[in-house]
Design a protein around this nucleic acid. Structure first.
Lengths: 211, 211
DNA sequence: ACCGGATGATGCGTGGCACGCAACCTGTGC
DNA sequence: GCACAGGTTGCGTGCCACGCATCATCCGGT
């Protein structure tokens, strides 16, 4: 987007950051969820073509590097919602914005699996998803005309949306679940805006005939 | 509750765990959010009356030890919901269960502030709160008669509830916010079950006290 | 009450990591 | 072309997680 508007310095820095993050995730996937301890900083650094010391200038832990992509993605959620027509109802706007952002490239299954099903990565993954909440809450507050400092609705909804994205991801990764991520994501987000369904019909979710 | 039903061994172990967790949180509070790096493992261990090696048998990071209490609390949420009369509507049951669990002793402001406003603790704190989601989702699924493996509603709602608790905590800690934690918590949880308030009149945050 | 087994608590040693520091190299603006 | 700001690298330090072997303590059966 603004890559050309940046200094060469800045662009290189960004590229380095992405290179390290990408290398970290790739190596983590190779080792699998149980071999995370085997992914040495040295390996990540050399895979990214930088010195270990430089790696450490960008990230202060392997976990942070591995989840960098998720974190970056989360940072864009607020803006994504703002870019929806303001006439659109909140529910539709949120679903459209989130779905668009998270399915432009269908997520990398292996990467998501690594990030979401590795205990040691859990904290960082949660942190990554929660990064969306602040900006999202502001965008929601703006759209609904509420004051986020006094009304909890925007923040709670933002947290719920972030949670729904997580849940959708987890569900999508489950073996035996069919359906595109987009479908599951929409379904999960719908739940956020649907008050308690005391008796709530069967088979939503990825919901085509799997039993 | 079942303390007397446990083996002496088990009880001691539990006590040690709590001692370490408590010591860790106390020391962290003393150093403040910016001095977390100064809280040495050795200090925590000796403050808890155990060897550093033993500390490491219980927790594999300072963060984990500091957030142990939050984690333990989260593990009880599922059970708390199950203990509500099954005739009660989901919303009321959840609000009652969570409020009861989180306000039996009014939370320690300093401790919560430490846990929720220290970047280095953020991941572990999120992890602690998210521990409630699994059991909570199951309890919700059971109460609403939905199959959590096919329907996303239980999991999404559980995540939303966990998020609401977090948001309530953050709001409660904000300077200038009046009102008991119980009130704020109820207000936040209400948002979860309230569909989008396109025009949403009352039902604010601190509700009673503030302007 | 006694004893063998199980389980937790410790000490020690090892490998790795985060980060401060200072020198070096590379774009940038004058 | 030059001096400077900013990024990269190597080195050294202190801390930490964890495997292993040992010892103390608790448990259950006889």
């Amino acid at each position: 987007m603004n890559d050309d508007a940046m200094d060469l310095r800045t662009r290189n820095k960004q590229a380095t950051r992405e290179a390290i993050g990408h290398a970290a995730l790739r190596l983590a996937i190779e080792q699998g969820p149980n071999g995370l301890a085997l992914v040495r900083v040295h390996d990540i650094a050399s895979a990214a073509g930088v010195s270990p010391r430089t790696y450490n200038n960008y990230f202060s832990s392997r976990e942070e590097a591995i989840c960098a992509f998720q974190a970056d993605q989360s940072r864009r959620v607020g803006q994504a919602l703002r870019s929806r027509p303001s006439a659109e109802p909140l529910e539709e706007a949120v679903i459209a914005a989130v779905t668009e952002l998270y399915t432009d490239p269908e997520p990398d299954r292996a990467g998501l699996a690594m990030i979401m099903s590795t205990p040691a990565l859990e904290g960082e993954a949660l942190k990554a998803f929660s990064m969306a909440e602040g900006p999202l809450a502001e965008a929601i507050a703006e759209r609904t005309g509420t004051d986020p400092r006094r009304d909890l609705f925007p923040a709670v909804t933002a947290a719920a949306v972030a949670g729904a994205i997580r849940v959708a991801g987890r569900h999508w990764l489950q073996p035996g679940v069919t359906g595109s991520f987009a479908t599951i994501l929409r379904s999960a987000l719908s739940c956020v805006f649907t008050a308690a369904p005391t008796t709530h019909g069967p088979g939503k979710a990825g919901g085509d005939g799997d039993d």
